[in-house]
């Protein structure tokens, strides 16, 4: 809900600004008070809200699965164990279907990516004001901050840093396994001598180089774009709540509808991210 002192564009802007911790112009490390200040911090700054939620969800995922894995038996599984085993089998069969090599890292990697990305996407389904307003109240009363300067985004996958961080991890693994399996020479030869043979070398390098670089970029931007768009639409719908009861209740209906549709998107994007990760790593394992 937009507070009275906020304009619509201010509300949206506030919702889309991260809580950034970095090096201020004054020479000390602090949280940025505005989007402009965050921009001035340059590269060496951290979106604390995004990293925090990302780590929190990863830890939630880890301890939930760990609690099941610790007492996993081959006997009749309970409800939670059943669900997690179903997930594991689903990921395992996806990996078996798309990954032709033999590498014990791929399946756990795919499980991590799938569940983690899904959980990060899932934050989008929480009503957009719940956690930011809680943070604002906390900042106002506990820390004595101006609530307008308390920024708190909750959907990590709607931040390009987070999705690009994941894609970068995948990219490093692609390079590592390419070099490990084919040797540094084999990997470079793949870049230089395909698809037009050795006489088309510069052209080959450009083509293959772009196709290599485009993989992590498309992987991260696809997820980011979908989630950012989803979040923005939720914010736009939330604007209606401050425009009278008629528009407000219409907004409620819209929010329910979009949330239901969004369930499909968050699952699909998590699945796509996992599948592409497996496929890219499979390509890194294959000789061309």
């Amino acid at each position: 809900m937009a507070s009275e002192t906020l304009t619509a564009s201010g509300y949206i802007h506030h919702h889309l600004t991260n809580l950034t911790f970095g090096h201020l112009a004054g020479g000390h490390w602090a949280f940025a008070n505005s989007a402009e200040q965050a921009k001035e911090m340059g590269f060496w700054a951290f979106n604390v809200d995004m990293l925090g939620w990302s780590l929190f969800l990863a830890l939630f995922f880890f301890f939930l699965f760990r609690s099941v894995a610790k007492r996993a038996t081959s006997g009749v599984p309970g409800g939670l164990q059943n669900f997690i085993e179903w997930l594991v089998e689903f990921v395992d069969s996806s990996v078996r279907g798309s990954f032709s090599g033999k590498n014990d890292l791929i399946a756990p990697l795919a499980l991590t990516v799938f569940v983690w990305v899904f959980l990060m996407n899932f934050m989008d389904l929480l009503p957009v004001d719940w956690l930011p307003m809680t943070a604002e109240q906390f900042g106002k009363h506990a820390l004595g901050m101006d609530p307008l300067h308390v920024f708190f985004r909750v959907v990590p996958s709607a931040d390009p840093n987070i999705t690009f961080g994941l894609a970068l991890g995948v990219f490093w693994l692609m390079l590592y396994y390419s070099v490990k399996i084919k040797g540094i020479g084999g990997f470079l030869a793949e870049l230089a001598f395909q698809p037009f043979g050795k006489f088309g070398l510069p052209f080959n390098l450009i083509l293959e180089g772009i196709s290599l670089i485009s993989k992590p970029i498309s992987l991260s931007l696809r997820l980011f774009g979908n989630m950012y768009a989803g979040e923005t639409i939720f914010i736009l719908i939330a604007l209606m709540y401050s425009a009278g009861w008629l528009l407000g209740s219409f907004g409620g209906l819209l929010q329910i509808g979009w949330a239901i549709f969004h369930i499909l998107i968050i699952l699909l994007q998590a699945f796509i991210f996992m599948t592409l990760t497996i496929v890219y790593l499979d390509m890194a394992h294959q000789h061309h």
Binding site: S54, F62, N161, G169
Partner: peptide
Amino acid sequence: MNINATLFGQSIAFFVFVWL
């Protein structure tokens, strides 16, 4: 919406959790 060191944090977390 700036690209900053968050992505390194996320990459490190990614490797740590994959390993875990």
